[in-house]
Amino acid sequence: MSETTQREAPLSTTAERQAVTSQAGATPSRDWVIVTRGIKREYDMGGEIVRALRGVDVAIRRNEYVAIMGPSGSGKSTLMNIVGCLDTPTAGEYWLNGTLVSSMKDDELARIRNKEIGFVFQTFNLLPRATALHNVELPLVYAGMSARQRKETAAYALERVQLTSRMYHKPNELSGGQRQRVAIARALVNNPSILLADEPTGNLDSATSSEIMKVFEELADQGQTVIMVTHEADIAAHARRVVALHDGQVSSDTRREHFVAQNSTAIEAKQ
């Protein structure tokens, strides 16, 4: 099966193929924000080895807007955790911005998460007792920024998501869409290399979902690299490139147009 799926899953361009398949250990060129080479992740579940990723090769260019799609159990969450530097692969290489992060220690990974990655979660993951402003300040706290500069920077990030008026509200005083916008502001506040969104609309109604998707669209237009993990085809259809995972391997990697054409029924059914 893997033979056929791999053949049906051509990497988008020969350049990408080169970036991925060039010799192991070689530093990818500066164009590539993310290059993974044969990433495997295995879990030991009480003596039984679970293979969540069975060799994933993905290359993502700066300024790309990519959706990683797949049903539950396809390994997309595991891939996201590795790409987000929350986890390290059992085997394979992960290059982020020309740095090999797959062999880094915990504290180095924390620093990379702080500087290079902005997370947006399905459940928002805001600190409930902190104001919107303070939530957005958090990454800057760990970056060691001074209190005054921190406040200015965080306020600007909230302005970018049109939440200046809600700066001093706590999460429970905000609507779902507003909460997710606070989370987006928090993700962007450190100018990360990639914005990593995990099912960002999973807890939102369809109207709010499209509002949030519009925010991502605008960010991508402004040149922000966005990687979105989702299991919904209509959400994935917003991205400009869709990487589909199946059983821990890339099953297809297509431009949006192809993806929409292939999945028109599923997308239309939702819309």
Binding site: A110, P139, Y142
Partner: peptide
């Protein structure tokens, strides 16, 4: 626990 997870995701080191 969740707050700790959030803080770690945002770049808190062990020492923090």
């Amino acid at each position: 626990t969740r707050e700790i997870g959030i803080r770690k995701a945002l770049g808190a080191r062990r020492a923090d």
